[in-house]
Design a protein around this nucleic acid. Structure first.
Length: 225
DNA sequence: GCGACAG
DNA sequence: ATCTTGTCGC
């Protein structure tokens, strides 16, 4: 059972990130797109009841058919702090992932990986803790910048940190639609992560894995007692 | 010091 | 993330 330590404060949370960061593996290409099992994970919150629901949805990468679905519900254990999202989301996400009958070949997160203030975003954290290849697909540029990519599906541009470092890619998944922001998590290359993001988004801007996980965790939250 | 800031 | 109706379009 994989676990994430809940820090007592923000300083401890940053210290944990700085420590775990060394375990990120960046020299693997990762699983090929269009084959095997891809899991999408996402969470939904109910601040009123202090509840968080997570979903893990496994897709057949070749057909994008749903192979397995798991959910988990827990208490919100950490506030939302930009840069510390993993401590808020991962405990429940890992519970959902652990309930799967078989580990997926890749986990797609709703957020960032290497593109992060300390180079250790949600997707990196999840990858290091589970050992699985992981990547992040975010819906907003966060603090990063990029030159507008071409208007066609598949067009992309480097996602840049303030110091000019390339930390990910702004990827157009649909013609004429705002791009998504892809970054590496663990054990996958940026090129391959983008290929996966594109293959998972044949029809909508957001990857099917994330869309299915999003709707499932919302449903789990509604049906939570 | 202030503002901005994945979800 | 979440609060929220109707509405434009395939």
């Amino acid at each position: 059972m994989t676990m994430v330590k809940t820090p007592a404060d923000e300083a401890e949370a940053r210290a944990i990130q700085d420590e775990l960061r060394a375990a990120v593996v960046l020299d693997e290409v990762g699983p090929p797109p269009g084959r095997g099992l891809v899991a999408g994970v996402d969470v939904a919150y109910d601040d009123e009841r202090d509840l968080v629901a997570a979903a893990a949805v496994v897709l057949d990468a070749a057909t994008l058919d749903v192979v397995e679905e798991r959910t988990a519900v827990g208490r919100v254990s950490f506030p939302y702090v930009p840069g510390l999202l993993a401590f808020r989301e991962l405990p429940t996400v890992l519970a959902a992932l652990d309930a799967l009958s078989a580990p997926p070949d890749l986990v797609v997160c709703d957020g960032y990986g290497l593109a992060h203030p300390r180079g250790f975003g949600l997707a990196c954290h999840l990858g290091v803790v589970t050992g699985l290849p992981s990547m992040g697909v975010a819906k907003n540029p966060f603090t990063f910048t990029y030159d507008e990519p071409g208007a066609r599906r598949g067009d992309a541009a480097a996602l840049l940190a303030g110091d000019g470092r390339v930390v990910g890619r702004a990827l157009r998944t649909q013609d004429g639609i705002k791009p998504v922001y892809v970054s590496v998590g663990h054990r996958i290359s940026l090129d391959n992560a983008c290929a996966h993001a594109l293959a998972l988004s044949p029809r909508f801007r957001i990857p099917e894995s994330t869309r299915r996980a999003d709707s499932l965790c919302r449903r789990a939250l509604r049906e939570a007692s």
